[in-house]
Computed example of a mutant assay.
Amino acid sequence: MGDMIVRIMGEGQVKLSDSHLPELNKLDDELLAEMENGDGPGFRATLHALLEKVRELGEPLPDDSLEPSELILPPPGATLGEVQELLGDDGLIPG
């Protein structure tokens, strides 16, 4: 198990242990379901929860750190449409 570098757009990067991915994936699945249903308020709440969890579990990297991000998450204010453009087939979080 290693660490992955996660960037929250407009905020910076955190280092996150792979062991947290299952927990984040649950939120990611909820996000996908809400997007498919066009549930804007639910989507927004889940996006906030996902970002909150990443901030809580991750260790912030210094602003001048230039580690390549393995995962890029949208900013908290992102719209459903903007997030759809970022999504891969697996959602925001691979696996």
Rank of each mutant, 00 (worst) to 15 (best):
Pro68Glu: 13
Asp39Leu: 06
Ser65Lys: 05
Asp90Arg: 15
Arg7Asn: 04
His48Phe: 05
Glu36Thr: 06
Ile8Lys: 04
Pro76Lys: 12
Pro22Phe: 06
His20Ser: 14
Ile72Arg: 12
Gly38Arg: 07
Pro41Lys: 07
Lys15Met: 13
His48Thr: 12
Gly77Ala: 13
Glu34Gly: 11
Pro74Glu: 05
Leu24Asn: 05
Pro74Cys: 01
Gly95Glu: 00
Leu47Tyr: 05
Leu86Thr: 08
Arg44Glu: 12
Val83His: 02
Leu21Asp: 01
Gly12Phe: 09
Glu36Gly: 08
His20Leu: 11
Phe43Ile: 06
Leu27His: 02
Gly58Val: 08
His48Arg: 15
Gly42Thr: 01
Gly88Arg: 14
Leu21Ile: 15
Glu82Lys: 01
Ser65Tyr: 05
Leu73Ser: 04
Leu24Ser: 02
Ala78Met: 05
Val54Arg: 03
Leu87Ala: 14
Leu80Ala: 02
Leu16Ala: 03
Gln84Thr: 07
Ser65Phe: 10
Pro41His: 05
Arg44Phe: 04
Met35Thr: 04
Ser69Glu: 15
Val54Asn: 05
Gly95Asp: 10
Gly95Tyr: 08
Ala78Gly: 00
Leu24Tyr: 06
Glu67Ile: 07
Gln13Asn: 04
Gly88Leu: 11
Leu32His: 10
Leu24Phe: 02
Lys15Val: 06
Ala78Trp: 04
Pro76His: 09
Ala33Trp: 10
Arg44Met: 12
Asn37His: 10
Leu16Gly: 05
Arg44Ser: 14
Leu73Phe: 01
Pro60Met: 10
Gly77Tyr: 08
Leu27Asn: 00
Asp89Val: 14
Leu71Ile: 09
Glu23His: 10
Asp63Met: 14
Asp63Trp: 08
Ile8Met: 04
Pro22Ser: 09
Glu59Asp: 14
Lys53Asn: 07
Pro68Asp: 09
Gly77Thr: 12
Leu73Gln: 07
Ser17Pro: 02
Leu57Phe: 12
Asp39Asn: 13
Asp90Tyr: 08
Leu66Phe: 11
Ile5Glu: 06
Ile93Cys: 00
Ala45His: 11
Leu61Asp: 04
Asp3Ser: 08
Lys53Tyr: 11
Ile93Leu: 00
Val54Asp: 00
Asn37Ile: 00
His20Gln: 13
Ile93Met: 01
Leu71Ala: 03
Gly42Ala: 07
Ser69Leu: 04
Glu11Ala: 06
Ile93Tyr: 05
Leu27Lys: 01
Asp64Gly: 07
Gly95Cys: 08
